[in-house]
């Protein structure tokens, strides 16, 4: 077989960046040689810093995923991810947005079909944690608004979702698995689960929503009217109880405001 010539080293930050994420790439031409040699181990310090710090950022964002697959598997998997998806933004608090979807299509992890769903939960928790601080719209505030709306206009009410609200739907019992992994005593049963993540004030809270809840809240947070959201939920779940879902949503601080019908 013909021998492939070693790639030509280039200079500057493009070459430096390329060599950081590819251990087979040559050390940039402008890096000072030591005793006539490219300083492999010195350059390796930067290679390691970049890759290990990014793996560590993923590990702190996805601790339950790491526990589920074990440290060795997680670090190897994350090592592949960080090379395929290096961060765009300098804010490590948000690194790894694409990780849940990527995990779902990562062949070596396919024996753990719920892994991506658990990652979605962890991502949602991280986003809720850093979301804007806005006082949730209270039951009392709602009652005050509702008292000024004619009954026939009630279906036209639209709510604004609290900025920390995240909804996760999975075909797997990801809420129960997360809870079981994080010190809560819950049975983990076969079947999909819908989860609502919210941080109305200081603490991130997570609740499994009953049938219809996910669809109702998704529609409400997309700005649909109360009637449309209720109809979507009813279409999915017969006997959807609007009053109890609306009460629970208000008591959980899911909304930050309501828009009364105009005119």
């Amino acid at each position: 077989m013909p021998k492939t010539p070693p790639p030509e080293a280039e200079a500057g930050q493009a070459a430096f960046a390329a060599a950081l994420l590819d251990a087979d790439a040559p050390i940039p031409a402008d890096v000072a040689k030591i005793r006539g040699q490219a300083p492999e181990k010195r350059f390796a310090v930067y290679r390691n810093n970049v890759v290990v710090s990014l793996i560590s950022a993923l590990a702190s964002a996805y601790p339950t995923v790491k526990r589920l697959v074990g440290a060795q598997f997680f670090d190897a998997m994350a090592g592949v991810y960080v090379r395929e998806h290096p961060p765009i933004s300098p804010m490590m608090i948000f690194y790894g947005a694409a990780f849940p979807g990527w995990v779902e299509s990562f062949p070596p992890a396919e024996t753990v079909p719920y892994l991506g769903g658990v990652a979605r939960l962890e991502r949602a928790r991280r986003e809720a944690y850093h979301a804007a601080d806005i006082e949730p719209f209270t039951m009392e505030q709602f009652q005050a608004v509702a008292s000024g709306v004619a009954p026939e206009r009630m279906p036209e009410l639209r709510f604004t979702a609290h900025p920390s609200l995240r909804l996760v739907r999975s075909a797997h019992p990801v809420f129960s698995i997360w809870a079981d992994q994080n010190g809560h005593d819950v049975p983990v049963r076969q079947g999909g689960e819908d989860v609502m993540i919210i941080r109305p004030r200081s603490e991130v809270t997570m609740r499994q929503t009953p049938p219809g809840g996910f669809t109702f809240l998704s529609a409400m947070s997309a700005g649909q009217t109360l009637a449309a959201a209720a109809a979507s939920a009813e279409a999915e779940t017969q006997g959807f109880d609007l009053a109890s879902h609306l009460t629970a949503a208000l008591e959980s601080g899911v909304f930050s405001g309501v828009k009364a019908p105009e005119g």
Partner: peptide, 17 residues
């Protein structure tokens, strides 16, 4: 130092000439 290039943010304090 630098840490951002077209390929993304490299999360390390990289040296300059």
């Amino acid at each position: 130092a630098w840490s951002t290039h077209d390929s993304g943010f490299l999360n390390d304090l990289l040296p300059v000439p």
